[in-house]
Design a protein around this nucleic acid. Structure first.
Length: 321
RNA sequence: GCUUGACUAGUC
């Protein structure tokens, strides 16, 4: 059984949900009983492959075969559902845990909050967060972060910023103080409402708030995007330089953000220069970069060049053909 | 470091 489980775990790493399911069937044919590990790994494979319904099916199969799902199996299934935005199914499992006497842990709540966030249910996400806060163990920074993201993607950036304040107040409360992810999400909240200056001051605050909040490339990228959306291309370019002065390495996403900011500011030449320096840095343009370049050329009516870009991008694999 | 199982953020 353990040999099979190792093989299924390997399928999970590769996201090969079909093979994982086949291995479980094969175990049965040979008279072996798949256990919790077998099923959880198979569920994990579905999660990585973005197949929430198969994950749900496996959880039920587990139950039907008298392998009682435990908190890990159920949470793994909720993670798969969360990735697909299947919030009502995720909450159903949470409720089932209650009735079956399985105690949910922080990861379980995190999965439920994420499911609501991805499903556009920010109110329910906040509701789950406060339920967790009222438990003896309390909520950790990660659950707060997921709730913040739920607010940002749900079009409630003000509530995300409220959570940041709440977390700052929690500071003595050990594991619920803001971290780098918290601040990055807060910067995204500002970005969505055009508050580029607030985004910049949050970035500055991060640098001064201690070792757990030092900005990384993603924090900078979010701030660059905030400036870009507000048509502040000069600030965006300055941030991109500052990122490197800080000893951080730009990556395709950070370049995409600054290239887009330049284009939004009408700085086509600058965006081309940035694209060139991206390639000089040894970074490969991706699908987003390609889209940017095509938009930039189209803006200026250079349709045939845009066509050629599409062909080249297909050849190099930057975009699917 | 791994030693049969689960979890958070950036550009579009």
């Amino acid at each position: 059984v353990i040999t099979y489980n190792s093989a299924i775990a390997a399928c999970a790493s590769g996201g090969d949900w079909k093979k994982a399911g086949q291995l479980i069937d094969e175990m049965r044919r040979k008279g072996l009983k798949p256990d919790r590990y077998s099923y959880t790994s198979a569920i994990h494979a579905c999660s990585k492959a973005g197949n929430p319904l198969e994950a749900l099916r496996l959880l039920r199969a587990m139950d039907a075969n008298n392998v009682t799902p435990d908190v890990i199996a159920m949470t793994a299934c909720m993670d798969a559902l969360a990735a697909g935005g299947k919030w009502s199914e995720a909450i159903m499992i949470l409720d089932q845990m209650r009735s079956k006497g399985v105690t949910p842990n922080e990861r379980t709540y995190k999965a439920a909050i994420q499911a609501c966030g991805r499903g556009g249910q920010w109110q329910r996400a906040l509701e789950l967060l406060s339920r967790l806060e009222n438990r003896a163990s309390g909520a950790t920074v990660q659950e707060y972060n997921c709730a913040m993201m739920a607010c940002v993607t749900g079009g409630e950036p003000g509530r995300a910023l409220d959570l940041l304040e709440q977390m700052k107040a929690n500071k003595g409360g050990v594991n619920a103080g803001p971290d780098m992810v918290t601040y990055t999400s807060a910067i995204m909240a500002c970005s969505s409402t055009g508050k580029w200056d607030r985004a910049l001051s949050l970035l500055e605050e991060m640098r001064e708030a201690g070792p757990r909040t030092q900005p990384n490339v993603r924090s900078y990228t979010a701030a660059i995007a905030a400036c870009g959306r507000a048509r502040k291309w000069e600030e965006a370019v300055a941030l991109h330089s500052k990122l490197m002065e800080d000893g951080l390495s730009p990556d395709p996403a950070s370049f995409n953000a600054v290239i887009r900011a330049a284009r939004r500011g009408g700085q086509h030449k600058l965006s081309m220069k940035l694209l060139a320096s991206m390639v000089e840095s040894g970074l490969s343009p991706d699908a987003v970069t390609t889209g940017e370049l095509i938009s930039s050329l189209s803006d200026r009516g250079r349709w045939d060049e845009a066509q050629r870009v599409v062909q080249i991008a297909e050849k190099t694999g930057a975009i699917p053909p």
